[in-house]
């Protein structure tokens, strides 16, 4: 049982590591979750399994929310979702999955964006030139 509980917490996030400024990049997310709709019965005892679904997915880039989706029980088990994002500056991408019990789980990734000259686009003003990896 403990193993199954742990399995419901595994999350995956796949992004390109680097991009050119103005490019539209694809972000693929996957959560390993049973997504119990609250309708299925145990075949032996006839007890209905209680509902347990992920009902909110939020995507933030550098702390600003760029995309959000509400899910109901019609989304399949182990929900996969891919969406697009415009690369403006390099930064930290966070994806948050929220359960209907209020538990949330995170996954993060760093995307580095270069302009046409091959120089990194940093979202904030810095005294000396450095990479986003050193800042974070």
């Amino acid at each position: 049982m403990a193993g199954e509980e742990r399995k419901n917490w595994r999350r995956r996030l796949k992004t390109p590591k680097s991009a050119i400024k103005g490019e539209i990049i694809t972000i693929k997310t996957m959560a390993e979750h049973i997504m119990e709709p609250g309708v299925r019965r145990d075949p032996e005892t006839g007890v209905i399994y209680p509902k347990k679904i992920i009902d909110l997915v939020i995507c933030r880039f550098n702390g600003k929310q760029i995309y959000k989706s509400h899910w109901y029980s019609g989304v399949s088990a182990n929900p996969f979702m891919s969406f697009k994002m415009k690369a403006i500056s390099s930064g930290l991408l966070e994806v948050e999955w929220v359960d209907d019990y209020g538990q949330s789980s995170y996954k993060k990734a760093i995307i580095i964006v270069y302009d046409e000259n091959g120089k990194e686009v940093i979202p904030m003003k810095l005294d000396k030139a450095s990479s986003i990896k050193e800042v974070i």
Binding site: I24, I25, F61, K64, Q65, I66, Y67, K68, S69, H70, W71, Y72, G74, V75, S76, P79, F80, M81, S82, F83, K84, M85, K86, I88
Partner: peptide, 18 residues
């Protein structure tokens, strides 16, 4: 089934889901 909220930073409003 689902609701999707976009913003101008999304770049393109296209989503794959199961």
């Amino acid at each position: 089934i689902a609701k999707f909220y976009f913003s101008p930073e999304s770049g393109e409003a296209s989503v794959d889901i199961r």
